[in-house]
Design a protein around this nucleic acid. Sequence first.
DNA 1: ACCTGAACACCGTTCAAGT
DNA 2: ACCTGAACACCGTTCAAGT
Lengths: 204, 204
Amino acid sequence: MHGSRRPRPGRKRADRYHHGDLSRALVQEAVRTIQARGIAHLTLRGVGNRLGVSQTALYRHFADKDALLGAVAAEGFRRLEADTRDAWTSQGGGREGLAAMGTAYVRFALTHPSHYRVMFGAALDEHPPHSELAAAGTAAFQVLVDAIIALQTADLMRRDDPLLLARYVWATVHGIAMLGIDGRVDAESLMSFANERMPTGTAP
Amino acid sequence: MHGSRRPRPGRKRADRYHHGDLSRALVQEAVRTIQARGIAHLTLRGVGNRLGVSQTALYRHFADKDALLGAVAAEGFRRLEADTRDAWTSQGGGREGLAAMGTAYVRFALTHPSHYRVMFGAALDEHPPHSELAAAGTAAFQVLVDAIIALQTADLMRRDDPLLLARYVWATVHGIAMLGIDGRVDAESLMSFANERMPTGTAP
DNA sequence: ACCTGAACACCGTTCAAGT
DNA sequence: ACCTGAACACCGTTCAAGT
């Protein structure tokens, strides 16, 4: 009888996962582990065991550890996109909206430092561009591009190439976030300074 | 007789190293490995074997792998400091000097991507601040602070808190360098754009 | 179609022993 | 004071076998 084997206590049973579910569960558990204990403690064995699944079940869904990390990174870009878009709309756009986006971006990085590191980590550039990851990263970046175009249309920002402006703003905010994660600067206050200065440099 | 034991071909003999030399050789070999093959290929066993020394000889000089990486990072900051200082003086200071510093900084990161990642990697913030590393990082940052103070004295830059300005400039250049390493932007051209825009935002 | 269990080749680190 | 060699506990990955 297929119901007679008792699941180990405190663990989900392997047969709870049907098509697509284990894949999602693996990414979720990896994100949870990274957030709680850091990248160094992420092991495929640990992820599998915590889900009540064998250490190698993962290989049905991901080519290797780096592929799992790619999915983790993609998930991070989706959350970052949601946070920055919410920040923009919560202010009704405008310069306040752009400033709120920067603050939200930095806050995401500071509250999810390990996840953020995976999103921009070395593990990704050693492999061919992962389509899901590339799409998630592009979508997150597009929120900033759209914001800049809206500001230009409203004559609130200098009419340089919006892509170039977006990359410049992104680099600044990314640098602040990274140095903040490293504990080298107070990222929140430095982002405030940037929000005061950046419009001066980019206004028409 | 101490000269009777033949060294293995192609390897340096262990007794070639006297006090302090093996420590330096280990860091050099680690830097070489990282530059040539990436962080993922850096193993303590490999470093030792390539120096003709046992896999565990390293533990006389470094507490663990992270301590070795800390020394590698410190060495990176020393080289970065030299490069940016040379760039500043080669232009005789001024705004051209600051722009040259930014270009030199980005170029260092792009030509030594793995080394640069170690300098700002996750391995460092899980441990108590390494004194040699902290000193090297501070010295590299101080070059930028001194440049900004010189610009302010010459009335070429707005008289904000120089430390805050330096952190802001650093974050921008660091972000450009990081995104460049990730292959997400063309760092050299973005740095050119920043060199045109940043003075506008920070001039008096 | 999806998962398991054993096995393989590695790796960081410890420690008693050597010189 | 510095280094070696064997050993330990881990890890990613492969693969034949199960259902």
